[in-house]
Design a protein around this nucleic acid. Sequence first.
DNA 1: AGCATCATGTAACTTGTTACATGATTGT
DNA 2: ACAATCATGTAACAAGTTACATGATGCT
Lengths: 179, 179
Amino acid sequence: MSSIRYALLSLLAREPLSGYDIKLQMNGRIGPFWKVGSNQVYPELSKMEAEGLVKLQGVEQHTYRPARKLYEVTEAGKEALIRWTVEPGGVENVRDDFLLKAYNAWLVEPEKMKVQVEEIRKLHEERLAAYEEKVEELKRIADPGKTDDPIASSISVVEFGVEYERLYIRWCDNFLKKL
Amino acid sequence: MSSIRYALLSLLAREPLSGYDIKLQMNGRIGPFWKVGSNQVYPELSKMEAEGLVKLQGVEQHTYRPARKLYEVTEAGKEALIRWTVEPGGVENVRDDFLLKAYNAWLVEPEKMKVQVEEIRKLHEERLAAYEEKVEELKRIADPGKTDDPIASSISVVEFGVEYERLYIRWCDNFLKKL
DNA sequence: AGCATCATGTAACTTGTTACATGATTGT
DNA sequence: ACAATCATGTAACAAGTTACATGATGCT
């Protein structure tokens, strides 16, 4: 059920990370999709540690700061992740307030709606640029030919993001024309 | 904050509905995006009634069944909806388990991944067909020329769905090729 | 006989969000 | 001086899911 745990495992399967790292990665560039709060990350890591899915790889201490706890997946964790990955199901959950607002466009003066659309359009332009850059960056370090290269999987997912943002921008332009 | 209330208002602004109707509309064709449970709909309707955003238009009683309570928006409700609609902000919340699974493709035998992708692809083909049909249906009853026609807004939103599903299918085909 | 539909609603539970707390350090 | 960054975590609250309860009717 709770799939936040698999999000954490997916990241940890690639490299050891601290809870803070995970938060940054999920809320950063790739993460307009999938935000998490620290209240989810830290307790979930502890739980998974208790269940033997992850273990502490080490603790970095810089005297003045809280200790940085680096986690890595265990064999059991990797198996659990693989089991979940090939398990059927995985429908997306989309909740788009802007689209709901567009559904109400008929209630509002077109000029006011235009302001809204342009604001959102700008946001998606920014995301698009970030994703495109990310794809370039990943392609530079990818190892072509290897099918089990995590970078190849990353590229596919970020490319989805690129196409999604392009679609969103096209749709905004179309919507603006109709207003 | 709670935007489920605006989803309900958006539907009620078009026609009076019962809680049950709202549930059907949201979980039906348009509603792979945005599912709601009865525990959300009924209490929220009561709350909004207490706040004067909606009011009972009438109660249909078919003797043997629970009374069917038809709600309609009040002026205050319509104003609240318009205020929310033109208010900035409205970033989408996407949580796509399948995309997360794709991110883990490198861990899994390609054959097993293919099964997964094909299953999801099929689901999106079905949705695409449903949305395309819906667009056709809406276009038949739309009143062209009128800018304040709710049907026009509906068409735009469902067309987003159409493009989204097409993108998803294209992406699946691409991903399959790479596996 | 047994399940699906209509129609309301409640209860128990799991998730997710927002805000707070600590505390030295680096940048403006 | 003040905010941001690093790094952990807790507490209070809001939202969402799953299951249940009622109860007549119509379909297979």
